[in-house]
Computed example of a mutant assay.
Amino acid sequence: MAWIQLTLTTDDEHARQLGDILMANQAQAVTYRDAKDAPIFEPPPGEIPLWSQTLVTGLYPAETNLAPILNNLHKVAFLSKPLQYKTDALEDKDWEREWMDNFKPICFGGRFWVVPSWHQPPEPEQPYLLLDPGMAFGTGTHATTALCLEWLTEQDLTGKTVVDFGCGSGILAIAALKLGATRCIGTDIDQQALRTTRENAKINGVADKLEVYLPHEMPNIKADLVIANILAAPLIELSKVILGYLKTDGPIAMSGILQRQANDVMAAYLPRIEFSAPRFQEEWTLISGLCSGRVNN
């Protein structure tokens, strides 16, 4: 099927509203892109970032008559007058197939694989996790997730209990179970993340070992290991909460941290955590260490 794209520019305050207007005017899908190549590194927890100038694109079947749609857009008060827009024809191709081809099995630590469900595990004798890209963050392709998976492959998880703080898709919790942990407790502020984690646990045959909770529902537990791949600000703000889930001498790893933020995050966990050297990938950092049990004087 051939398609046509209709793209307009607006500010972050009106981008979502414009997307809703396009959907109400027959768009089959809407996407948001940066209009000025301005990076956003740390959106608020649970929110999808938008840029100060955002390209909002509606996707329409090629045979769509855009004239009445453009007429409706001319009436939108926050859009420029005269209306500025761009249309692009998209060739007929199997978009789903092309999207799937972009995702390949990825190996971490030389022994653990994350495998899209439409692929066969490259080395089925090694532990692997079946995971498809979806709404919740965490497919193994982002540097922060990759750093956490590499770290997990280096831990002795046999018989251990793990807390995954900010579980997203469940990728880290399920990986820990596949690598030998016997119980994992995941928590997230997003109900969609909890649903996705449960579904991915079922797909991977570990649903009986994985529990998920909203933060206020978390059980009183001391885990053998804690991993938290969220963002620097909540890692700092919630340091006492996160540390409360970790046994003395237990390892902890945290990511979702820009390199320039690493020292501030570590300071929030001193002297309780004896940190190892940080790890870096692209602009991102993983910090890790052992819980010493010491407290501030």
Rank of each mutant, 00 (worst) to 15 (best):
K104M: 13
Y32C: 04
L66W: 02
G170Y: 01
V56K: 04
P49T: 11
Y60S: 06
P39L: 12
D264W: 03
D101F: 11
V56D: 05
L270F: 00
P251E: 12
F165C: 07
R33C: 09
E283Y: 08
R279T: 15
T187H: 06
L90Y: 15
D264A: 13
I257N: 01
S276D: 14
A223W: 02
N25L: 12
K86M: 07
G19E: 01
R16G: 09
E91C: 00
K209G: 10
A262T: 06
I203C: 05
D34C: 06
L83Y: 14
L243T: 10
E217W: 08
Y85A: 03
G110P: 11
S80M: 10
T31I: 01
R198N: 03
V295G: 15
P234G: 15
Q28K: 05
G140C: 08
G293V: 12
W151L: 12
E13R: 05
D88E: 15
L231F: 14
E98L: 04
T9P: 01
S276Y: 11
P82T: 10
P271K: 10
Y128S: 07
D190I: 08
P116Y: 10
G19W: 01
Q155S: 09
N71T: 05
E199M: 04
K104S: 15
Q26T: 07
S117P: 01
K160A: 03
A223T: 08
V241D: 13
E13P: 00
I171G: 04
W284Y: 07
E125C: 00
E96Q: 08
Q53N: 13
A15K: 03
T158C: 10
G110S: 14
F41C: 09
E98I: 06
K178Q: 13
C291H: 14
E98A: 12
G170C: 08
L172S: 08
T31F: 01
L130Q: 10
L130F: 07
T187N: 12
P105L: 11
S80V: 12
I48C: 02
F280I: 10
D34T: 08
C148Q: 03
V56S: 00
L235F: 05
R272Y: 02
I106Q: 14
H119N: 08
S288K: 02
Y32G: 04
Q5T: 12
Q28N: 03
L210V: 06
P68R: 04
T54P: 06
L83H: 15
L22W: 00
W95P: 02
V295E: 15
I230G: 08
R279V: 13
M23K: 00
R272C: 08
V76P: 00
H74A: 09
W3A: 05
I106L: 14
S80G: 12
P234S: 14
I252A: 02
T182Q: 13
L225Q: 06
K209I: 03
R97L: 11
Q5N: 11
I242L: 06
A143S: 15
G256E: 07
E217D: 14
L6K: 05
G289I: 13
E199T: 08
L129S: 08
Y245L: 13
A77Q: 14
